[in-house]
Design a protein around this nucleic acid. Structure first.
Length: 478
DNA sequence: TTTTGAGTTGTTCGA
DNA sequence: GTCGAACAACTCAAA
């Protein structure tokens, strides 16, 4: 019987994998995941993502075990691992889902060459997108650079393929003798185990993903369009880490959401808004695929010469949630404690780092890369550039978020700030987002001593804003 | 080819 | 407190 290797990448699930279904139809399947940090370079998953990856692999392994097979794990150079495997077993083909970031594209070419040289078929199937990047282009035949026409075009294009199930009669190949135990990938933290409480927050894996989607579509979606902007509300899907590792595919999400819309037409505005967020993920991947340099270089080239400052003390205050601006600190602490930050807060904290602290967006991008469970090579890059003003379809640079106004608008009753900055919990709403303006008596009543219990603002908003606008003037002259 | 309309998410100022 | 205009000018996408 012919054996096909199914090489898992960012698709840690069993349904909606056309390459796996095809492998199953062709004979027995050898499911394989290779952790290859060297090939990924500085895009190897960060600490928080590794935690997710561990648990997602665990869930995938259990699913495969339930179906009678065993997930094989290897660690090291993908090409060497694959070459050894193809040399030691009778393998007719290698199947995989496509991946789109620069290092994954490069590695895929090497894997294909390796297979070709050994006379083994390498077959790649559509990956974690609704539409392949080559299929979406404007009338000039070039990639879109503005979101709205991009997404309009996607919505008019042929609908994404229906998810395919794994055939129930799948047979699994004999496991590899050299396969590793999950623990041997060393993906989870030990000393200290900062993620000890994360299983209460997250359920990685495809079952967790399906449950999150159901929970969202049954309840949260009803006030998604406005609720999604309020970090204290539970109005978002929290699907991002599941999508990052492919616990669920965007096609599954898209079709499930469309089915809900068919049953409940009144939800049109909410569901379309939700699908547009999938669209932003899609847009980020299209940008990264067509303009791979945006990983490191500004999309708008004039930002090459932007006079970033890069003050280490200010950066540390931002990372630790000690800037003296309550919403900023709440966001950064949520990130540190949960591996996640609400989208509105991501915008506020990214704006603060790049504009108030004049720190390079790459510095913030690296921090998010290490601390987010959903750190995604496309979304993280494109969104940081968007916030910094250097990205595609970015906010105009002069739009500088006022952290006080943002707090008053999106956390008016202070539930979010009080949750993450408990030392300010007793302050009245009126001063919660600007404690430095509270009268001494109010601070004393709330038990807050500014400068010891909670920092004074590390920069003055008005001064920082003017400095940012002045810095922007410098690159406009050139 | 030229023209035209439009572009995720905001802030500040002055009436 | 609320409202509208200005911010600064640019590039994209489509007609």
């Amino acid at each position: 019987m012919a054996t096909t290797v199914y090489l898992f990448r960012n698709d840690l699930r069993l349904t909606d994998l056309p390459g796996l279904a095809a492998a199953s139809r062709a004979g027995s399947v050898l499911p394989l995941y290779i952790l290859d940090d060297a090939a990924a370079g500085d895009r190897a998953p960060g600490g928080a993502s590794r935690w997710w990856l561990h648990h997602s692999l665990q869930a995938l392994g259990e699913e495969i075990a339930q179906a009678g097979g065993q997930l094989n794990l290897l660690r090291g150079d993908s090409v060497a691992c694959l070459r050894e495997l193809l040399g030691s077993r009778d393998i007719s083909a290698v199947h995989s889902s496509r991946a789109y970031s620069p290092w994954e594209v490069a590695l895929e070419a090497q894997l294909r060459d390796t297979c070709d040289a050994l006379g083994v078929t390498f077959k790649r199937y559509p990956g974690a997108l609704l539409h392949e990047p080559e299929h979406i282009e404007n009338q000039s035949g070039t990639p879109f650079k503005v979101f709205t026409p991009f997404w309009r075009h996607c919505c008019r294009a042929e609908a994404p393929a229906q998810p395919v199930p794994l055939p129930s009669d799948t047979t699994w190949a004999e496991p590899l003798a050299q396969g590793l135990a999950l623990q041997e990938l060393e993906l989870t933290p030990t000393k200290p185990d900062w993620a000890a409480h994360w299983p209460t927050l997250w359920t990685p894996g495809s079952e967790g993903a399906r449950n999150a989607l159901q929970r969202f579509l049954q309840d949260r979606v009803q006030h998604y369009a406005s609720g999604r902007d309020h970090p204290a509300e539970e109005a978002t899907s929290r699907l991002s880490p599941h999508l990052r590792f492919g616990d669920i595919s965007p096609r599954q999400v898209w079709h499930t959401a469309r089915a809900t819309l068919q049953q409940q037409p009144a939800l049109e505005e909410q569901i379309n808004k939700f699908l547009a967020e999938l669209g932003w993920r899609e847009f980020s991947y299209h940008l990264l695929f067509h303009f791979p340099s945006i990983e490191h270089a500004p999309f708008k080239s004039q930002f090459q010469d932007f006079p970033w400052l890069g003050n280490k003390t200010l950066l540390r205050a931002w990372q630790q949630g000690q800037t003296g601006y309550p919403v900023v600190d709440a966001g950064m602490r949520e990130l540190w404690h949960t591996g996640y930050m609400h989208n509105r807060m991501r915008m506020v904290t990214a704006s603060f780092l790049t504009k108030h602290l004049l720190t390079h967006w790459r510095t913030g991008e690296r921090w998010f890369w290490d601390t987010l469970v959903d750190a995604d090579p496309a979304s993280n890059t494109a969104s940081w550039q968007w916030a910094a003003g250097s990205g595609a379809d970015a906010a105009p640079y002069f739009r500088i978020f006022n952290p006080v106004t943002q707090g008053q608008k999106f956390d008016a009753d202070g539930v979010y700030v009080r949750r993450w900055v408990p030392e300010l919990a007793a302050l009245p709403d009126r001063y919660l987002h600007r404690p430095w303006e509270a009268p001494a008596a109010v601070l004393e009543e709330a038990g807050v001593s500014l400068g010891s219990d909670y920092p004074q603002p590390i920069v003055d908003h008005r001064e920082a804003r003017e400095a940012a606008l002045a810095a922007y003037q410098e690159i406009r002259k050139g």
